[in-house]
Amino acid sequence: MTDTRHTLVALVEDKPGVLNRVASLFRRRSFNIQSLAVGGSEHSGLSRMTIVAVGDSAQIEQVRKQLEKLINVVKVSDITEEGMVTRELALIKVKTTASTRSEIMQIVGVFRANIVDVAPGSLTVEVTGDEDKVNSLLRLLRDFGIKEISRTGRIALTRGSSS
């Protein structure tokens, strides 16, 4: 079986230590997390976690079942095979000079990204999209010199009315 990227979505109780329990489980069972994002959900008291993990389908199924055993984890789904919407947000601080600023702004415009801070010598771009889009923009901006990047990691929902 081949390793692929899987997107797991978990509804977890909003209690102290839950993130630690989830992270500890991944480490303990030698499962590899590529990104993990967590925030509120539509249910009060429950958070939604989006975890991108790499492995073959048997390994990922084992991860899913181990996660479900955690008392504070209410439900876990591997939505990789389902229709899903995924987004990531990145903040990118790019070096600028008087001569490059307009070119950068043009690129930002093409990507429908926003400039959220301008300073002498740099500007900060906010971009939202799937990882490919974020990576493409990063590639283009790299030539100008990137000072800092902060990425949220993937968040995901299944499309339409499911669950």
Binding site: P16, G17, N20, R21, S24, L25, R28, L70, I71
Partner: peptide, 14 residues
Amino acid sequence: ITGITIPITKHNYL
């Protein structure tokens, strides 16, 4: 001790 025993308990509480 709750941190220490996460991997060796079914669940734990502080």
